[in-house]
Design a binder for these strands. Structure first.
Lengths: 237, 237
DNA sequence: AATATTATATGATTTATATCATATAATGCC
DNA sequence: GGCATTATATGATATAAATCATATAATATT
């Protein structure tokens, strides 16, 4: 049932302005852009692009959540970035004219546009504003990556686990109850982000649960004591 | 004696083309650029810019080696990037209009140009080629950072140490003897890159030395058995 | 619905690596 | 040149976290 390719849909209903980097474009530019993009619907677990593939364009997430993963040593998966609606993905390889060094997989059903490569390059060349937006996006991703490096180098697993929960909350926000993190990841996926074993991940979540920092209901994690979670993460401020 | 500020020198003797991103400029553009940059000589250990500072321009390394470091938890230093002559530094914060999130410190005496901020922005706006060069640079740094994340998440200290030596070799190359890595870092600095304790770093270098993978002479490290070091690093290929 | 498969959970054990301790070598300083 | 400081080295110990093992719960599959 899975991985049978995305279902193409009309592009008329999706609003490209959703994607923050395009907010700098004016009405005419957006209209023009829409001609050169096509939308597709992806089922949960489908690949948007894969490691070592060649970029054909820029992907814009209209709805749904995406993980960017790379295959590490002994085939172990590493989650590099987590992406939400409004974000662009695949811009790095596209801009630097390289193959993808990671894969993009949907974490839930998603609607994603692809903007034609040639058109995108024309667009950023003619609109410095747009170019700066994309540059800012990459700059932000670089900062996040380097923060992750410091965390992995200097923090223990417990601290990183608490930090990861705060990161998930910051990225995807809460559900209507104002405490449940609005994303469903398996314990293994969380471990693949934190850089630990699945067992250690499960154990620590259990501990946090026992300590009433969080509560667990299946894959859904609720933050009960934000202050204590921040303390556990050992965040400086 | 240290940190008494860089000594300003004439800009006439330094060739901006050294800096790879500027290779795409033509003769006239280089000449123009030279008017808007100023060179400075730094002693070993001096700060080029510091964490939380505001960027005044783009730094180009004419000669010397630089480390980009950030202060982690409990004040522990993390080395994020290592830079050599021809490279640019401080571009991330400059482009995204943010404060520096890391400091740049010279590892040896260095000659560094600073290109005026306003002029640099004009230059990249008028020259898409230059813009793309800078974007490629950031893209490369992002890739390296994400590779580092995978390594920190999935490899043990021994593997990361071997990998770090290969990284130092790839970055700075060998001396004339074709085996001595052309950079002098303290054991603590290497540990701050690898993400381990100074003691573990010293111990592992000692081990590699005993196993004839490398040889040690003060801060100078020579690679004696590249093949075995690659194996130890557990590099896939 | 029944069975197979995968995900979550938790205990027991091992191991890598940090930490603490102390010694020696190298470097900076008056 | 001699003294202080810092860097390197190595041993002993503690401990965080991986690994191995097994059980149960939750999902898929037929």
């Amino acid at each position: 049932m899975k991985n049978n390719g995305p279902i193409e849909t009309s592009c008329m209903h999706c609003n490209v302005r959703l994607n923050s980097v395009f907010n700098v474009l004016d009405e005419g530019q957006v209209k023009d852009l829409c001609i050169h993009k096509s939308c597709a619907v992806y089922k949960k677990g489908q690949y948007v692009f894969t490691e070592n593939g060649l970029p054909a364009g820029l992907f814009c997430i209209n709805s749904g959540k995406i993980k960017l993963t790379t295959t590490g040593y002994d085939g172990k998966e590493q989650i590099l970035r987590l992406v939400k609606s409004g974000d662009i993905v695949g811009y790095r390889a596209l801009l630097s004219n390289e193959r993808y060094h990671c894969s993009a997989v949907t974490l839930e059903d998603a609607s994603i546009c692809i903007i034609d490569k040639k058109y995108f390059f024309d667009a950023i060349e003619s609109s410095p504003k747009l170019m700066f937006e994309v540059v800012k996006k990459m700059s932000q991703d670089l900062k996040v990556a380097e923060d992750h490096i410091v965390s992995l180098s200097q923090k223990n697993v417990r601290e990183r686990m608490a930090e990861a929960l705060l990161f998930l909350k910051a990225t995807y926000g809460f559900e209507e109850d104002n405490q449940t993190i609005n994303v469903s990841l398996s314990r293994e996926e969380i471990a693949d982000y934190v850089g630990t074993s699945t067992e250690s991940c499960i154990r620590l979540l259990s501990e946090f649960n026992n300590d009433k920092l969080i509560s667990l209901k299946g894959k859904k994690i609720s933050i009960l004591n934000l202050q204590k979670l921040i303390q556990t993460a050992n965040i400086e401020d």
